[in-house]
Design a protein around this nucleic acid. Structure first.
Length: 504
DNA sequence: ATGGTAGATAGC
DNA sequence: GAATGCTATCTACCAT
């Protein structure tokens, strides 16, 4: 079964109606698409005909009927429809309540749109059609706002992304329950011993074990299906930055090897398959070099240098070769901290708490100044951002990502640090989403599928015989997707072929 | 009993 | 003048 998304475009008819994106599912060569009302379409031509006779905006969303029924049978969250997406995008830009995490879609529909929309148990196709017709009228009202705010590209991207998200949710990841059970038993024993030995104060080790037991131990029973695969819910539209959130379970917060050895090893490739685990190298710094823009930071990447080593060398006066691991780690924290507006005081306490490095206020100040001297483009960007609330006559200010996703602030609640972070984190998220769309289109030809996305990491699965070929393709497409938003800064992706998540 | 928030801790 | 950011989940606690 293949699913492809199609942007319907008709240049000859003048500017296209806004926010028109149709997701057409192709099932065994037969396209199925449904618009609102009773327009059930069976071909792309019919879809285009129906669309071109209307004055927009539209729905938007179709699914192969079999897919819909399959989702309903598993009580999945139903397909999201355009009006809900529009509302979420506008709320981030224009203020108002935000709906996050589990149940966000139902809450938004019930509380904001004042309609009973998209019941969680959407078992019949006609129910979806009726609900979609509700969304038509809502979208008619919201689309002008979308256009005025320049949010159409964001909306279109989110529509086009949906098939890849639904595919990941449906597919799940093979999970080794037996190994996990053994692991949990180990946590429990360690916890019991520690509790007996040291009942008074709770050392960090005991707190960590409590967290592991309370948050993760039940996953094997709660979230693993009869087919031995663990499935989560991914939410592409619930964050201000444009990143995904993830719930039930949150597979984006699975403890790493350092915290819980053996946990990620339970996430395995299907029989006969391998995992491809890929992530971007220093993606936020690269994106920052683009959006600031900062030529000095851009050059670090063009020349293939290590930005953390470079900062460490600047601070210590040593050559980049002589930097120790410890110095590099501190420099990494400095780069991220100062990039996003950390002040000298916080840096001072961080350096002492994490590294026992005692600095006086003047030294902390000098470290920050040195960073900003090294990256003048970053400094100028900070100054422009700090001036935003002063340089407006309006009551609100906005920051935006490369594709134009907006995050608005009341002047009274303006946050300098958030205003720095959103365009960088958000642009990186957009580049990643573009990459996911490319991968969703191209991996099936190699019999490979995406399984999970974790902010700057992508996990796919492929037949063992040509996993290496898939690895190369994943690197290519991830690089290309991010390059679309960072044309002036090189992008690097590191990817490994492995049998479980922990090997990566 | 139910519901909301703060803080700690898991991820990026 | 100063200011790292975005999340989810669990426990403890307080208010209704």
């Amino acid at each position: 079964m293949g699913v492809r998304s199609a942007h319907v475009e008709d240049a000859a008819a003048g500017p296209p109606p806004l926010a028109v994106v149709c997701v057409v599912a192709l099932l065994e060569g037969e396209p199925h698409a449904w618009l609102f009302e009773d327009a059930a379409l069976t071909s792309l031509e019919e879809l285009q005909t129906a669309w071109s006779g209307s004055d927009g905006p539209y729905v938007v969303f179709g699914h192969a009927q079999a897919e819909l029924r399959g989702m309903a049978a598993r009580s999945w969250e139903p397909p999201r429809v355009g009006c809900v997406m529009t509302a979420q995008i506008l709320l981030a830009a224009e203020g108002g309540p935000r709906f996050r995490g589990r149940g966000w879609l139902e809450q938004l529909a019930a509380e904001l749109l004042d309609v009973e929309l998209l019941s969680p148990m959407c078992t019949e196709f006609d129910a979806l059609a009726r609900e979609a017709s509700v969304s038509l009228e809502l979208m008619r009202r919201m689309t002008p706002q979308l256009r005025r705010a320049g949010l159409v590209p964001t909306f279109e991207m989110e529509c086009s992304l949906l098939p890849s998200v639904l595919d990941m949710e449906r597919r799940g990841i093979r999970f080794d329950r037996e190994a996990f059970t053994v692991l949990v038993r180990g946590w429990q024993e360690a916890h019991d011993e520690l509790t007996l030995a040291d009942a008074e104060d709770a050392p960090p080790r005991l707190r960590r074990l409590k967290k592991l037991l309370s948050t993760y131990a039940h996953w094997g029973d709660t979230f693993v299906g009869d087919d031995g695969r663990i499935r989560c819910h991914l939410h592409p539209m619930t964050t201000d930055s444009g990143r995904f959130s993830c719930t039930d379970p949150n597979l984006q917060q699975v403890p790493s090897t350092h915290t819980a050895p053996g946990f990620r090893a339970c996430f395995r490739a299907s029989p006969g398959h391998r995992l491809i685990v890929a992530d971007y190298a220093q993606v936020e710094l690269r994106v920052a070099a683009q959006v600031a823009p900062c030529d000095a930071m851009r050059r670090v990447f063009v020349e293939g240098r290590d930005p953390h080593r470079t900062t460490a060398a600047t601070l210590t006066g040593k050559s980049e070769h002589d930097i120790t691991d410890r110095e590099r780690k501190l420099a990494k924290a400095i780069n991220f901290g100062f990039l996003f507006g950390m002040g000298p005081r916080r840096f001072q306490s961080y350096a002492e708490a994490s590294y026992g490095l005692e600095l006086d206020p003047a030294q902390a100040r000098e470290a920050r100044d040195a960073f900003l001297r090294t990256y003048p483009g970053v400094h100028a960007w900070h100054q422009r951002t700090a001036a935003l609330p002063r340089d407006t006559n309006d009551e609100r200010v906005h920051v935006a990502t490369r594709l134009g996703r907006r995050r608005g602030f009341d002047i009274a609640d303006f946050s300098f640090t958030t205003a720095l972070n959103i365009p960088v984190q958000g642009t990186a998220a957009e580049g990643f989403k573009l990459a996911m769309m490319r991968l969703h289109t191209r991996l099936p030809a190699l019999e490979a599928r995406g399984l999970l996305c974790v902010h700057d990491e992508y996990i796919a699965e492929a037949p063992a015989a040509h996993a290496e070929q898939v690895r190369e393709r994943v690197v290519e497409e991830m690089t290309a997707g991010m390059r679309a938003v960072t044309p002036d800064v090189p992008i690097e992706v590191e990817a490994t072929v492995c049998d479980n998540w922990e090997e990566a």
